[in-house]
Nucleic acid binder design. Structure first.
Length: 772
DNA sequence: GCAAGGTC
């Protein structure tokens, strides 16, 4: 008698095995996939973890050819479900053959139920074994034991709801993407795909809407009356209570009345203590937002880094919506781990009684993200030299501690100053107790001091001004704000949100500029065109409508076929709007893409073809790269390029032997197009004189910079053998100033995020010049 | 080649 358990992931399989066997399980491998086995009485158990979905939908191969199939007809074709991970399917079949019962134990959500049914379908084809479902909301022993003692029937409605989503998402994505891409290709040659999808398009839509607001913004004039008061000891500013005054006459009449006043008096005074609570525990979304806001790391990278940190045992599982600790959470263990390790300073600040500030979301799958292992920067750098690994780890650790600390207390003072009968307001804020902010340097607060004044006290007026300004457009969306918008509008899930942002970047729809997201021409024009023909595609409504259909399937009010039919109808309606506006859409998009192509050509411009006088450009293929003529296929003129190294075209250097252009190859050497590597050319020294830094201390040669693929150092032009090291990091610039002592040129070394060093590098110089 | 959703 063998009970087979199937979970969504390996980690859950092992944890369940540990709990059900009281730690006495064995890990074996079947076709290289881990399976955990143990027995109790005459019952033997085998627990296997999948890796998410093992099946997926796609169109039958007859519909693979984009040009041969009218994209619209795809909406009437039903996609097929196929096994995508044969290795898992094969193990499922093997286990099904020996199973007396199979328990589906995937995550307790729609996709989890669906993944369970994928396994069920595969197993049912080889065995008539029966299936049960274990529903648990955490991997704690109590919860797992309870779930396995109260097995239920698998929920077909829930699984079918996910099925309907898959089919509808695929239909819409494929039909729209092919239609738009092909329409554009009727006018312009491009390999790039213009994709549309029920999550990626609304995501781009948010960025587009903001950009439109910015572009359509018309600034308005307004006037602000401001004063600088003096209390006898210090100056402090005040603003007229009316704030922005949009009527010039009104502003001027107030200003004229008081502009010559020399004193005022305090007419209101409030002092309030206010507290700022620590942040809620971290869930995925919050981590991604803070990574972007505080550290300037893209959500995609933050998620990748968090996953690596998790796999290396530094932090807990990073994909969760939960921002609330369970009552059982063992704070003491985590705190102990840090007590005698790194972050002892944080531990020592913790209050005696631990009360986390909890959020309200509990998806019952995982606890919030918290640190597991105390580590130093060095420890984390062993995992990756990318400093962001440490930055994310440090954020997670500090967030964990901040969450357990008391609120920060501020004393907020409000003073109102009466000048004639006009009132000016002045606000101050002083931190009384840093609370959680002591361990959380990412949130900054700056004190604004006000003098100690009482009601009725007089103040002098140093200055009163009335200045005109203009209203400013809203700022570009930050990646953190975009994530919030997606979350609030139900676009994507905790695991996919950053992926949708990435898709849009990959497609060239928008890009990062620092922390903000900036739309690119291609994205703006596509969104603009869609907004004209099928506005719902770039708004969250499509997703919402499909979601409500799916919800009906899940709750049993609608069967999957009707839901797919109704959803398909919805997509068809949108598709016909799209296809009616085809010419307008294509012409709009084509203009932007041709512009991009022209820009791209400019970047790759090498020179003119010696045979036909057309433009030469760098051409990259799967097999390598070369310089070719844009007149191809009529003109077949080509020139070879070095196989390796980043290429940058030196616009300032002309080849003396008549090469079409000079290209810098990585850090290594130069290459004249049509001639070959410059180091084989007799003019090399004249074209690229060595970067001399000073006299050689050993002979009458000069020291110059030698750059190889792996290092850089100074060598002697006379090849006397004397060398000297150079700083191995940072950008080097040779200054014109010379060291007063040895006469070598002063060197500037600038590393990323560090102050530049300005130094004399000569090791033999007795008076090493060093200034910043 | 096209979507979104799991997870490694």
């Amino acid at each position: 008698m063998t009970t087979v358990v199937i979970t969504e992931k390996n980690r859950a399989a092992e944890q369940i095995a540990r709990i059900l066997s009281n730690g006495k399980y064995k890990r074996i491998r079947i076709e290289s996939i881990p399976v955990y086995e143990f027995s109790s009485g005459n019952q033997s158990w085998k627990i296997m973890g999948l890796a998410g979905h093992i099946m997926g939908y796609d169109y039958p191969s007859a519909y693979k050819d984009w040009r041969a199939v009218d994209p619209g007809t795809l909406l009437d074709i039903e996609p097929e479900k196929k096994v995508l991970k044969e290795e898992y399917a094969s193990v499922i079949r093997k286990l099904a053959n020996e199973a007396s019962e199979i328990i589906l134990a995937c995550d307790y959500d729609r996709e989890g139920e669906n993944i369970g049914f994928e396994a069920k379908d595969i197993a049912s084809k080889v065995s008539d074994v029966s299936f049960k479902r274990a529903k648990f909301s955490s991997l704690s022993p109590e919860e797992i034991n309870r779930a396995f003692n109260s097995l239920v029937e698998p929920d077909v409605n829930m699984a079918m709801a996910a099925e309907a989503r898959q089919i509808l998402d695929l239909k819409m994505g494929v039909a729209f993407t092919r239609f738009i891409t092909l329409s554009v290709r009727e006018y312009v040659r491009t390999k790039k795909i213009l994709s549309v999808g029920p999550c990626q398009s609304p995501t781009c839509g948010f960025v587009y809407e903001r950009e439109r607001t910015i572009r359509d913004f018309k600034p308005t004039d307004f006037w602000k009356i401001e004063a600088l008061f003096n209390s006898g000891e210090t100056n402090f500013p005040g603003s007229h209570r009316k704030g922005k005054i949009f009527n010039k006459d009104e502003a001027m009449s107030v200003y004229r009345k008081i502009k010559d006043c020399s004193s005022g008096s305090i007419c209101e005074r409030n002092v309030k203590e206010s507290s700022v609570n620590p942040p809620n525990p971290l869930n995925t979304n919050e981590l991604l937002k803070r990574g972007s806001n505080f550290l300037g790391i893209s959500p995609e990278n933050t998620l990748k880094i968090a996953e690596d940190l998790y796999l290396a045992g530094f932090i807990s599982y990073p994909r969760t919506e939960t921002n609330k600790y369970s009552k059982e959470f063992k704070f003491a263990e985590i705190i102990d781990e840090f007590r005698n390790g790194h972050y002892n300073d944080c531990v020592s600040l913790l209050p005696g009684d631990i009360h986390p500030k909890n959020g309200k979301k509990d998806s019952h799958d995982h606890p919030p993200i918290y640190p597991i292992k105390s580590a130093s920067k060095k420890d984390v750098m062993k995992l990756s030299e990318n400093p962001d690994y440490w930055n994310i780890y440090d954020l997670i650790v500090r967030h964990f501690f901040a969450n357990l600390m008391p609120p920060a207390i501020f004393e907020k003072t409000h003073l109102a100053v009466l000048v004639k009968d006009e009132i000016f307001d002045s606000k101050g804020s002083v931190m009384k107790d840093a609370g959680w902010m002591q361990v959380y340097p990412f949130e900054k607060s700056s004190d604004k001091l006000l003098p100690r004044l009482q009601m009725g006290d007089g103040v002098n007026i140093e200055e009163i001004s009335c200045n005109m300004s203009q209203t400013t457009p809203p700022k570009k969306l930050t990646e953190a704000e975009l994530l919030t918008l997606m979350e609030h509008n139900g676009i994507g899930t905790k695991a996919t949100a950053s992926g949708h942002i990435e898709t849009n970047k990959k497609r060239g729809y928008f890009e990062n500029r620092g922390k903000t997201v900036s739309i690119m021409d291609r994205g703006f024009v596509l969104m603009d065109a869609l907004n004209e023909s099928v506005p719902s595609v770039i708004k969250p409504e499509v997703r919402a409508r499909i979601e409500s259909l799916i919800q009906d399937v899940e709750s049993g009010n609608m069967d999957i076929d009707s839901a797919v039919l109704e959803g398909t109808d919805l997509i068809k309606k949108m598709y016909s709007c799209l296809s009616e506006g085809k010419d307008r859409l294509a012409s709009k998009v084509v203009a932007a893409i041709s512009d991009e192509a022209a820009q791209e050509d400019k970047k790759n411009f090498i020179g003119y073809c010696s045979q036909c006088n057309r433009i030469l450009k760098i051409i990259k293929t799967d097999n390598g790269r070369f310089v070719g003529c844009t007149g191809y296929p009529q003109c077949k003129n080509t020139y070879p390029l070095p196989r390796k190294g980043a290429l940058s075209i030196l616009r300032s250097s002309e080849c003396r032997r008549g090469g079409a252009a000079v290209i810098k190859v990585g850090k290594k050497y130069h290459w004249a197009v049509g001639i070959g590597p410059c180091f084989t050319c007799e003019f090399e020294k004249e074209c690229f004189p060595p970067e001399i830094i000073g006299d050689c201390p050993e002979c009458d040669g000069s020291m110059f910079v030698i750059q190889t693929e792996k290092s850089r150092f100074l060598g002697c032009t006379k090849r006397c053998g004397y060398t000297q090291s150079l700083p191995d990091k940072g950008r080097l610039t040779i200054n014109e100033d010379k060291c007063e002592n040895c006469g070598w040129n002063i060197l500037r070394v600038k590393e990323m995020k560090k102050d530049a060093l300005v130094i004399c590098i000569n090791r033999k110089c007795k008076k090493r010049y060093n200034k910043c």
